[in-house]
Lab assay of single mutants.
Amino acid sequence: MDSLVVLVLCLSCLLLLSLWRQSSGRGKLPPGPTPLPVIGNILQIGIKDISKSLTNLSKVYGPVFTLYFGLKPIVVLHGYEAVKEALIDLGEEFSGRGIFPLAERANRGFGIVFSNGKKWKEIRRFSLMTLRNFGMGKRSIEDRVQEEARCLVEELRKTKASPCDPTFILGCAPCNVICSIIFHKRFDYKDQQFLNLMEKLNENIKILSSPWIQICNNFSPIIDYFPGTHNKLLKNVAFMKSYILEKVKEHQESMDMNNPQDFIDCFLMKMEKEKHNQPSEFTIESLENTAVDLFGAGTETTSTTLRYALLLLLKHPEVTAKVQEEIERVIGRNRSPCMQDRSHMPYTDAVVHEVQRYIDLLPTSLPHAVTCDIKFRNYLIPKGTTILISLTSVLHDNKEFPNPEMFDPHHFLDEGGNFKKSKYFMPFSAGKRICVGEALAGMELFLFLTSILQNFNLKSLVDPKNLDTTPVVNGFASVPPFYQLCFIPV
């Protein structure tokens, strides 16, 4: 009986604490739906499609509103004006990374994606500088992407125009580009180590996009005490870190300090320079996690976009025909596509942009946080508050993009057929937390897609009208449904 009384008292205290925290903070924060004790607004949000729920709530509470995930307040920004004001106009104040408990377990605050403060700034600055020195957006990395595009075309030829699921092959190409940047090595598509790495990356994007992960991140005790797919994700990350550590040891034994070959060499050189400046942010643990982040951000996002792009091109054969006509006119058949071609191919450029806009790969991006107490639109948001960005509300804005739910390359073309930029184009987020590999991803999408369409016609196994382009999961990332196609050599 005594234990029951204690339990009831504990629960009562928890409920009172929950109510007090919510009521004391709500006077400062933007308005929002009334949260339930302990669980907050979790029942009012469709976990399978958070973005749709945010759109519905914005119609009631406006472009800036507050939700509670458990006891934790989260300020939501919906629509271009609110997102721009926060991420661009007040970029420094909104540059923090929001709480992501599962990532905390995986990387302990290291790396480039989930770190904060001085650690994040130094690692991000170093990573950007190193990638630029190796030619991100310049010639040397373009050579690597072109080489991988040629290998991709050869792998597709091996399908002999038979029906195939493109998931694996389209994942190999961007993964190999990242391998060449980090390890100075590309792998054969049949290499077992490479296959294991690909498998872990593919599993992780599916797990991260599941409703279960949303629950884990908002009720963090689940991570330590409950079984579930989150444990598989943590094991996959541990596998990748151990693999990278092996490569780091190989580099330490063979590195030429006067001739760095890749990202690992550059990081080890930085560690050597910083060894007298303790404590340094440049450690082996930081290198492991930064490399894992580059793999995660640079492989599955690009391969998922490529997979979605081919599905949309199957669905819209008239678009595919126009792209192939432009390829034939500008590039021809006797040389590989290059980035200089893009400025002469406005329709193809528009298609690449429209694919990214339409699929809305990361509907709410990753959570941000404010780095200080900030007054925002007459609300006071306390330091450390998590900020949720609705990228969907920007990419699918119906004023900027008429009929935003329709796939239409003319969203990025003017009346004369010239490519038209849009400030609403934010597939990689915006501001200080914009994806480090934005330029690389854009290069890969253009070169891989043009190389495929230069060499193959795409054949659907069903009537294009019957192809479903609805994402199968739409949590962290929008993942396309399973499909097969035939690559018919031109």
Rank of each mutant, 00 (worst) to 15 (best):
L4K: 07
L9A: 12
S12I: 13
S12Y: 09
L17T: 13
S18T: 14
W20G: 12
R21A: 14
Q22M: 14
S23R: 14
S24E: 09
R26V: 12
R26Y: 14
G27V: 11
K28C: 12
L29G: 02
L29P: 03
P30G: 02
P30R: 01
P31D: 07
T34V: 12
G40P: 03
G40T: 03
N41G: 04
N41F: 03
I42D: 04
Q44V: 06
I47R: 14
I47A: 13
K48N: 12
I50M: 13
S51V: 08
S51Y: 13
K52G: 11
S53D: 10
T55M: 14
N56H: 13
K59S: 12
Y61A: 02
G62S: 03
P63F: 03
P63N: 14
P63H: 09
T66S: 06
T66G: 02
L67H: 03
L67G: 02
G79R: 03
E81Q: 10
K84Q: 10
E85D: 10
L87D: 03
L90D: 14
G91T: 15
E92G: 13
E93I: 07
F94W: 06
R97D: 00
I99V: 12
I99C: 15
F100A: 15
A103G: 15
A103S: 15
E104P: 07
E104A: 13
R105N: 12
F110I: 12
I112F: 11
V113D: 01
G117D: 15
G117F: 06
K118S: 15
I123E: 09
I123C: 15
R124S: 06
R124E: 07
F126M: 13
S127E: 04
S127W: 07
L128D: 03
R132F: 06
R132D: 00
R132G: 06
M136F: 10
G137N: 15
G137E: 09
G137D: 11
R139I: 12
D143R: 12
D143Q: 15
E147L: 08
R150V: 08
C151Q: 09
T159Y: 11
T159N: 04
K160Q: 11
P163E: 06
P163S: 04
D165S: 01
T167F: 06
T167S: 11
F168R: 09
I169G: 01
L170Y: 00
C175F: 14
C175R: 04
N176V: 00
V177Q: 00
F183I: 02
H184G: 15
K185R: 12
R186F: 03
D188P: 06
D188Q: 06
D188G: 06
Y189F: 00
D191Q: 03
D191T: 02
D191R: 01
Q193R: 09
L197N: 00
N202I: 05
E203W: 04
E203S: 06
N204C: 06
I205Y: 04
I205G: 03
I205M: 11
K206W: 04
W212T: 07
W212V: 10
N217L: 08
N217R: 15
N217H: 15
F219A: 09
I222P: 09
I222A: 08
D224M: 10
D224T: 13
Y225L: 14
F226R: 04
T229F: 13
H230R: 13
L233A: 08
N236T: 03
V237D: 09
K241P: 01
Y243H: 06
I244R: 01
S254I: 10
M255V: 12
M255L: 15
N258F: 07
P260K: 07
P260F: 04
F263R: 01
M271T: 07
E272L: 08
K273Y: 08
N277I: 10
T283N: 11
E285Q: 09
E285V: 04
S286W: 09
S286G: 12
S286F: 06
N289S: 13
A291H: 00
D293N: 10
F295L: 15
G296R: 03
T299C: 05
T301E: 00
T302A: 09
T302Y: 01
S303M: 04
T304C: 07
R307L: 00
R307N: 04
Y308F: 09
Y308H: 05
L312C: 04
K315W: 02
V319W: 09
V319H: 11
A321L: 11
A321C: 12
E325L: 15
I327G: 02
R329Y: 11
I331E: 02
R333F: 08
M339N: 09
Q340P: 08
Q340Y: 09
R342N: 03
S343F: 11
S343L: 12
S343D: 11
H344E: 13
H344T: 12
P346E: 04
Y347V: 04
T348I: 05
T348G: 02
T348R: 00
D349M: 14
D349E: 11
V351D: 01
E354N: 01
E354I: 00
Q356H: 08
R357C: 00
L361I: 08
L361R: 08
S365L: 11
L366N: 05
H368A: 04
D373A: 04
I374C: 10
I374D: 01
I374L: 15
I374V: 13
N378L: 01
L380F: 13
G384P: 02
G384V: 00
T385K: 03
T385P: 01
L388Q: 03
L388F: 09
I389F: 15
S390H: 13
T392L: 07
V394C: 13
L395I: 09
L395P: 00
D397L: 03
K399E: 13
F401E: 02
M406F: 10
M406K: 14
H411Q: 03
H411P: 00
L413Q: 03
N418A: 11
N418I: 06
K421A: 15
S422F: 04
P427V: 09
S429P: 00
S429L: 05
A430E: 09
K432M: 06
R433H: 10
C435S: 00
C435K: 00
E438M: 11
G442Y: 13
L445E: 06
L445A: 10
F446V: 01
L447V: 11
T450I: 10
T450F: 00
S451L: 03
L453N: 02
L453Q: 00
N455K: 08
L458N: 00
K459L: 06
V462G: 08
K465V: 13
L467Y: 03
T470R: 13
T470S: 12
P471M: 07
V473R: 14
N474D: 10
G475R: 08
G475E: 05
G475Y: 06
P480A: 06
F482L: 12
F482C: 13
Y483G: 01
Q484N: 06
Q484M: 07
F487V: 00
I488M: 12
I488P: 02
P489R: 02
V490W: 07
